[in-house]
Amino acid sequence: MQLLWPIALITFKEGIRNRSIYGISLLALLMLIANFIISDMIGHEVGKVAVDIALSAVSFSGLLLVLFVGINLMAKDLDRKTIYMVLAKPISRAQYIFGKFLGITLLIITCLGILSCFAAVSLLLIKLGHQHYFQRFSWPLVCLSFSFIALMLILVSALSFLFASFTSTSFVTFILTIISYIIGVSLSDVKALVEAPQAVGIKVSPVTVKVVQGAYYIFPNLSFFDIKIQAAHGLPVPPSYIIGVVAYSVVYTLIVLTLASLIFRKKEFP
């Protein structure tokens, strides 16, 4: 841990100084301002729509953070060859990967914390104006949803580490990460569709079904982290589910990071 901390700290500092963060925060702010306008158009469930928009704004901005800042932090060391200086120190490549990951995790938690505060303020203000329409609103569920978004983004970030470990450019890492995210969030819906294609009147070949079922076990199922609808309607989320999601994300993240460090150990630098 003592060896990981300096790398984590420097990665975090580098990330927080990145100008992209300002742009991402501005986008999040604009989305949260839009929340006031859109919620006003709703007749009854103002609370639900406000929560939907607030959570989606945080989730989307967080994703941009991982894709544009997170990946860049990893790639910069390789592109600028500053990695030689780090690896010349008495630390292993695995320690380097875990340290970097720790730094990016810190960055995600900090940025998401700030974005969540903005989102909470927007919710609070809308709630003050439409008290009557927030009857099923629950702060603990909204906070839980923010935490699940953070866990999901940390997992996506771990995946980007895996891709960065075997690709040569950050652009390929970016593309692979974004594809994995799309697959991850829609996997359970796609699986449901190919297993019961008659719902939309299409035919699916048995090979496709097998491929999707295979992908279901390989790619992370990011829909586990999506409790926005439950948060928006104040529907209960059992504690066992919360424990399950935390366990799933920790195990998956560790598997991916271990794989990344294994591949990274064999990587040859030009």
Binding site: D52, I182, K228, I229
Partner: peptide
């Protein structure tokens, strides 16, 4: 629609 709306079903 559920697939194309990704992580944003409610939205």
């Amino acid at each position: 629609l559920k697939i194309t709306s990704l992580d944003f079903d409610g939205l």
